[in-house]
Structures are given as C-alpha cells and as structure tokens.
C-alpha cells in the first residue's frame, strides 16, 4: 500500500452562498499521477485552488500527510505551499521577467546558491523542457505552447514533492500535448514526485493517469474514483461512461 500524500475529508467548496462541490472525500497517494476530471464548470480548477491552499474550504479539511492545511500556522502552511510546484493553465509566468529570471526568482528566495549557480540551474530546468536558447526571452515573446513548458520549468524550480497541472494540454495541438504528457511521465519517473493533473483531455488522461476522481456538476460531488482505464471498463455510472467514451457508447 502506497503512502497517502494528500487526504481530503468532507470538503465543501463554495463561492459565498453558491456551493460548487460538496462531500468530497478522496486520497492522493505518493507517486501517483492523479487526474481530476469532469465537465466544464464542475469546479475542477476551484478544487485545485483549494488543494494549493489559495482558497479556504467552506467546510471540511485538507491534510498534507499529517498536517491539516487550515489548522496549522501560516508559516507552516506557506512551507507546505512552497513544496508544491504548480503549472497554471495560462503559464502564469511573471510578465516583467525573462524566462530564466522567472525560474531564478524562487531559487534566489529560498536557496543560498550564488548568482552563477542559480543561472546555471535556471538554464538547466529550461533545457529539461526543451527551451534551450530562449532563456532571455520575455513571456510575451514566445508561443502559447512554449509558455506552458516554461511554466512547467518554473514549477520544477524548487524540486517539488507534488506537482499540480491545471489543464496542461488545453490550447495545445495533439503532438505538443503528447510531448507534454511524455514530459510529465518522464519527470514523474525521474523525480518520483506525486502529480495532480486537472484535465478533461481524454487521450492525455488515459495515457498518464494512474488514479482519478470524477466531479459531477449536477450532483455537485464526486461520482467515480479509480484509474481512468478501469473506470472506462468497469464504471456503471452513465455520466462517467458518457464522458470517458465521448458519448459513443450511448
């Protein structure tokens, strides 16, 4: 049995009075590639913001190993947040900084490395995602796909224990999406990190997912859990079946 990395207990997410999801209970195990899937507007990205500690739950708890994210001190929480790498949907690179500076910023803040070493590391991380030669470009000067990869490089900057991806393949052509999937798999294999991916891209979630939850916007809770391939074969829930087979098996 693998260790539990993140546990979510009876989580309710809401914007003011408007409940988005309720009674969420699931565990993310160490070393898994955990997929959060569901249709548009079911609260996938909101769940991500909760897991990251950016938004406080309306009800329920989120545990990182033994630490309850909202019961510990702010300093502790910041420390946990820092051990997460995040790749945002749009890349969210800091627009006033070059790619290398984007990666160097967290390193400068949290390590005692010399400027020279930091620059070396930043160039290395960019090379990992195939952006050699673009180190001194600004985010506005590169394409959408490159921004995503640069966002991944920044997420990797502090060698995180958990990597979060918000719709990594959105807006990418199938080949680039496949390349990004391969990149995620190889990073998982080499770093052994836990990876959480929010996506509704079927080819990608079948290719990389080892565990998954399915959020439903009608019943406002999760309606299926398991490896995506098993869900496709075994799930009896019509909504899940329809989603995973693009409605073809209807």
């Amino acid at each position: 049995m693998k260790d539990v990395h993140i546990a979510v207990n009876d989580l309710t997410m809401a914007y003011d009075d408007f409940v988005i999801q309720q009674q969420l209970n699931f565990k993310i195990h160490k070393g898994d590639i955990f997929i959060v899937m569901g249709g548009n507007g079911c609260g996938k990205s909101t769940l991500l913001r909760h897991l990251l500690g950016l938004k406080k739950p309306a009800k329920g708890e989120i545990y990182y190993q033994d630490a309850n994210l909202w019961a510990i001190s702010e300093v502790e929480r910041k420390k946990i947040m820092r051990s997460n790498g995040v790749m945002y949907q749009s890349g969210a690179l800091w627009s006033s900084l070059t790619l290398a500076e984007n990666i160097a910023l967290p390193l400068k803040e949290y390590t005692d490395l010399s400027d020279h070493e930091i620059q070396g590391l930043a160039y290395f991380k960019l090379a990992l995602v195939g952006l050699v030669g673009f180190e001194e470009y600004y985010p506005s000067e590169i394409s959408g796909g490159m921004k995503k990869r640069a966002g991944l490089a920044r997420a990797l900057a502090l060698d995180p224990e958990i990597l979060f991806f918000d719709e990594p393949s959105a807006g990418l052509d199938p080949v680039s999406a496949k390349l990004l999937d391969d990149l995620i798999l190889s990073i998982q294999a080499s770093l052994g990190a836990t990876i959480v991916v929010v996506t509704h891209d079927l080819p990608s979630l079948f290719a990389i997912g080892t565990d998954a939850i399915f959020l439903d916007s009608m019943s406002k809770t999760l309606i299926a859990q398991g490896a995506p391939n098993d869900l496709l074969k075994n799930s009896s829930n019509p909504i899940v079946q329809q989603f995973l087979s693009r409605g073809i098996n209807e």
């Binding site: 913001r49 990251l52 500690g53 950016l54 910041k78 420390k79 947040m81 820092r82 997460n84 995040v86 945002y88 949907q89 749009s90 969210a92 690179l93 800091w94 627009s95 910023l105 967290p106 803040e109 949290y110 920044r154 502090l158």
Partner: peptide, 16 residues
C-alpha cells in the same frame, strides 16, 4: 492583469 493571468497566485504558491 497579473491577477487575471494567475501570476499573483504563482507568487503566493511559491511563498513570495
């Protein structure tokens, strides 16, 4: 626009 682009979230998750 940094808020819209999630750049501020990115700062916060890195503890800056």
């Amino acid at each position: 626009s940094m808020q819209v682009n999630e750049e501020i979230d990115a700062l916060e998750t890195l503890g800056i």
